[in-house]
Design a protein around this nucleic acid. Structure first.
Length: 324
DNA sequence: AACCCAGTCCGTGCGTAACA
DNA sequence: TGTTACGCACGGACTGGGTT
């Protein structure tokens, strides 16, 4: 209780500049005597609070004194700002409390970094409601070195060079203009522009990343929530998508689901295998996803996919089966 | 001189640890 | 388990100093 009041007291002095003990007591709903004792405690703790006597006197903090009441570092403050910036504000009726907390978080940051932190927070989107792409639960593992480099480039507004392995393709280096970072159901995505065209990259498919010195070609402000919604809607509406019915070993379920856009249906069969109906970006992705699972998966439909996998297997069998 | 403010002294209430 | 001692937080009454 007292610790809370000490924090509130310092914040009040920071906000108002100078306040009398009476005013502080009224604000904190304690007696002036208690306020004086608290100020004494703050002084003893090294907070540079001083008194000005006489009419219009009161207590004030030394100019330039910067609180670190929350003990937050930049990343922690940023994480809170990002989490509280959008849907959190509407959730659980905590909007006003969250707004107040956000003010405190911003207040706790050094003055020069407030604008930067607030701007950076706008480039993070945590689990937007349009989580319709997957039912995945397990969080994917992304090397911290890659993540840190991507994060730096996004926040600093610098171009980014990534080594990216798209599904079914060999890794390639690409230079992109990062727009923002989005997490959906444990998966991380980088929203970026490449040669002026909008692109979405899965962070788990990034093998390496380098922040470049040149500034990214992107707008100063971004509504990430909206941008993500638009992209996912476009993505889902894509005409090349294919729906596949497959049987897969439970141990390889994540491997298959991880490459799909969405899992439409799922049930366990009598032998313990899973029967999945999943949507893939296009025929090539679907074929690659089933092929890499080898004997752990079987495409049941459509027929062209079965034919394609059979032909491919036959070609390889012919190559290795022929006498040398 | 009046007013307003910070600062001091002292007593009260509550929770908790130590002890019989 | 009941009692005692102690620390902590609090508030009231008062004092002293600066400003108008």
């Amino acid at each position: 209780m007292r610790a809370d009041r000490l924090v509130s007291l310092v914040l009040l002095l920071r906000q108002h500049g100078r306040m009398s003990a009476t005013a502080l007591a009224r604000e904190l709903e304690v007696s002036t005597r208690t306020v004086l004792r608290d100020i004494e405690a703050l002084s003893a703790a090294g907070v540079p609070v001083y008194a000005e006597r006489g009419r219009h006197g009161g207590f004030a903090l030394l100019p330039g004194f910067q609180t670190e009441l929350t003990g937050l570092n930049d990343d922690e403050a940023l994480a809170l700002l990002a989490a509280g910036s959008r849907r959190g504000a509407q959730a659980f009726g905590l909007g006003p409390a969250l707004a107040s907390a956000m003010r405190k978080v911003v207040d706790a940051l050094p003055e020069g970094r407030r604008a930067t932190a607030a701007g950076a927070a706008r480039r993070l989107l945590i689990d937007p409601e349009t989580d319709l792409l997957a039912r995945r639960v397990a969080a994917e593992e992304i090397p911290e070195t890659v993540l840190a480099e991507v994060r730096r480039a996004v926040f600093a507004g610098h171009r980014l060079r990534i080594r990216y392995a798209a599904a079914g393709q060999d890794p390639k280096w690409r230079t992109v203009d990062p727009v923002g970072l989005v997490t959906v159901g444990g998966q991380g995505y980088l929203l970026a522009a490449r040669s002026g065209a909008e692109r979405t990259y899965r962070l788990s498919r990034m093998l390496a990343a380098e922040e470049l010195a040149e500034p990214a070609r992107r707008p100063d402000r971004v509504d990430l929530d909206r941008a993500w919604r638009e992209r996912t809607e476009r993505f889902r509406a894509g005409g090349d998508q294919v729906t596949v019915l497959a049987r897969v070993a439970p141990a390889r379920r994540e491997d298959l689901v991880g490459t799909a856009l969405a899992v439409l249906a799922e049930e366990a069969e009598a032998d313990g295998r899973l029967r999945l109906e999943a949507t893939f970006q296009d025929a090539r992705h679907a074929e690659w996803a089933l092929w890499q699972l080898a004997e752990d998966a079987e495409a049941l439909a459509p027929q062209w996919l079965r034919d394609s996998l059979r032909d491919r297997a036959a070609a390889i069998a012919a190559r290795y089966g022929a006498p040398s």
